[in-house]
């Protein structure tokens, strides 16, 4: 199963907020939808779910127009969305049945998911009586209660403590392993890095980066190296490199332990390394630089972009 978002545009009150969003995601993989607040992630998800209609563009599933009502989808909106004053099990069964499950299957699934998320003792309690973290777990259980093939999670990790985050991570990993198609948005890049093969970064309503995460990191780190020198501080190393090797490399920044350098056009890794050795620099680490997703995010969606 492949879901494809093609050139989707959307305006609110005459102002275009999505300027042609495109990305694809396949079953058995997770796509991390990244972007700053107001970038257009939630609007994109809502258009996929047919909450809003896009002004133009297409949403295709295996090449055919995607109709959310006809698919088994688990959708967890950012604002959440359950009844605070109703019994948890009752509303989970209600949502499962609206998505096509029979009553007994809905009850069984609801109980299983509550158990899986370690909140089965709250099944007959009102949602409002639970802590915020447990309410989010109920929300996730309600999202997955209908055994969806497509799972769309808008900021699923926000507000979760580390223990609950781990439970959610395990659930998402299992969904991917079970061959589900997962799209989720997050500000927490570490979660995206953990289980997303693909990412799409939205900035000001446009996809500014998209593709396989490994490839993106490789691309973004091309011609860049990290260098850690023994017995020198980062600042001393930076100053030394600027004085002696300015024709070969450009200092780009630093990691926690060393500095990041970009090779000039006429230079390659090998020649720079031999120049360092000739200069009797005590090297403790030398290698390709691969930026973290967080760094890529700041680069692509930072204030100066």
């Amino acid at each position: 199963m492949e879901l494809e978002v093609k050139n989707v545009k959307k305006s609110f009150g005459g102002k275009e907020v999505l300027h042609g969003i495109s990305f694809q995601v396949k079953s058995g993989t997770a796509l991390g939808l990244l972007g700053r607040n107001g970038a257009g992630k939630t609007t994109t998800m809502r258009i996929i779910m047919d909450v809003f209609k896009g002004d133009s563009g297409e949403i295709l599933l295996d090449g055919k127009p995607f109709e959310p009502a006809k698919e088994r989808i688990g959708y967890m909106p950012e604002e959440r969305g359950l009844y605070p004053k109703r019994i948890i099990l009752e509303q989970m069964v209600y949502l499962a049945r609206l998505r096509g499950l029979g009553k007994s299957e809905a009850v069984e699934n609801a109980k299983n998911w509550l158990k899986r998320l370690e909140i089965e003792e709250y099944a007959n309690r009102k949602l409002e009586t639970l802590s915020k973290g447990n309410q989010q777990k109920v929300q996730l259980a309600a999202t997955l209660v209908s055994n969806p093939n497509i799972v769309i999670l808008d900021e699923p990790f926000s507000g979760l403590d580390p223990v609950n985050s781990q439970i959610l991570k395990d659930v998402v990993r299992d969904l991917i392993q079970d061959g589900k198609l997962v799209i989720f948005s997050s500000h927490q890049m570490s979660y995206v890095e953990e289980f997303c093969e693909n990412v799409a970064m939205i900035h000001h309503g446009q996809v500014v980066l998209q593709g396989e995460l490994k490839q993106i990191k490789k691309e973004m780190g091309r011609n860049q190296i990290t260098l850690v020198c023994e017995g020198s501080t980062i600042e001393e190393t930076k100053q030394f490199i600027r004085q002696r090797f300015a024709t070969m490399v450009q200092v780009m920044g630093n990691t926690r332990e060393g500095i990041i350098l970009k090779l000039q056009e006429n230079c390659n890794k090998e020649s720079f390394l031999s120049a360092l050795l000739q200069a009797q620099v005590k090297i403790s680490q030398f290698g390709d630089y691969e930026p973290s997703l967080n760094e890529i995010f700041v680069m692509k969606a930072g204030d100066n972009q």
Partner: peptide, 17 residues
């Protein structure tokens, strides 16, 4: 209005007509 206020409407309109 309550469904709109507690945002359950977003889940509901994506589940049925």
């Amino acid at each position: 209005t309550n469904e709109k206020s507690n945002r359950s409407i977003e889940v509901l309109v994506t589940s049925t007509t």
